[in-house]
Computed example of a mutant assay.
Amino acid sequence: MRILTFISFILILTSCGSDSIQTQDDQNDSTDTIPEVIDSLAFYKEKLNADPSNPAVIYERAEYYIRHAEVELAQKDLESILAKDSSNLKAHQLYADINLANLNLETSKYHYEYILKIDSSKTGALIGMGKIYAALDNSPVALNYLSAALRVNQYLPEPYFTKGLIYRSDYYRRAEEDPRKEESWERAMSSFQTAVEQDPDYYAAYIEMGVMFEEKGDSISLEYYNTAIDIFPQSIEAWYNKGMYYQTRGYVDNALSSYYTLNRLDDTWADPYYNIGYIHLIMTEELDSAVHYFTRATELDPTYYQAYNNLGLAYEKKGDRVNAKKYYLRAVEINPDFQLAKDNLNAVQ
């Protein structure tokens, strides 16, 4: 069991894309008129039939592909734009964002640097460079780029949020006795708080603050998870962490309710099923239910050796040593270094 966080820079990169180009670099050009979004591939096809090489329409289609998880098609569209006009900064930005999300750091770095050579005030590129160096664990350079973005526009939430992740990583690396550890925690919290001050709907920052308070055993973490859910009810991270909050405090019904909600949002993720199984195995001792949910977890993730071990425990408690041995052995086969399963297997031999 674990608390989900956004410490993986893969996850935070989803907020760095075409939307950031408008809000960060072109916001002074915005008007009160909100353009209608036609989310239909046929719409773009019709427009391109009239003007096949129109870069603005091709760019819009690339955004459409990204919204529908067709990233490779989006890349091809952006490559076609750049092949005809290598100075198109919006195409460079979105192409760099896509590559950064895929951790193609050198490619994304090339395109961000190209943008900054043309215009050093482009905040999307500055933030992207900050994320690259954060992913490379070069915090000083990362912070310099993020601070540069804030000098251009101090009201952007994303640089503060990314700074928070950097400071929190520093917090984790420091030994408990290091006096700078608490300073890193304070800087991380301050950065996340500043992010939500700039954008009260920046739900990822609420999750991060919830996680940090939870690690200190502070019950205020639940308020942050609930705020994240109010902003984005489909947030699997917030629902999972809320379930863990209740589970670790022994509030079985509340924990199960959170996990059931999560399963309705995404029934392909093994961890919530594992946690439900754990509750039934350890906390309520409803062994048939435990078997059901651990089995579901292994169906979704056949390498989930902890779930196989707990299946063994459930069957052993049921008095079925044959199946207990079978699942302990399976856990050891997947992870030969999993000592708990090896001990359990030896006990039923």
Rank of each mutant, 00 (worst) to 15 (best):
V57Y: 05
A175H: 03
A341T: 11
L126R: 03
L156T: 12
I231N: 05
Y44R: 09
A255M: 01
T295D: 06
D343K: 13
N144W: 10
P159M: 12
T248E: 15
G319C: 06
A341L: 08
D320Q: 08
N346R: 14
Y145S: 00
S219W: 03
G250D: 10
E70G: 05
I334P: 09
S235V: 14
Y203K: 09
Y65L: 00
N323G: 06
Y328V: 04
E79V: 01
P52L: 04
R67G: 05
Y293I: 07
G17A: 02
Y44C: 08
F161K: 08
L165M: 04
T227V: 11
T261K: 15
V332T: 15
Y305K: 03
F232E: 15
F338D: 02
R174S: 12
D199T: 11
I7F: 11
L94F: 14
S191A: 13
E214C: 04
Y65W: 00
R67A: 06
I58G: 06
D271T: 06
F232S: 12
E197G: 03
Y114G: 00
F294W: 12
H111V: 01
T248R: 14
S169C: 01
Q154L: 14
Y273F: 15
G312P: 03
N226H: 13
E79K: 12
S257N: 10
T123W: 06
T284H: 07
A255R: 05
Y171I: 09
N54P: 07
D25K: 02
L126F: 13
Y246E: 04
L116G: 06
M189P: 01
F6G: 04
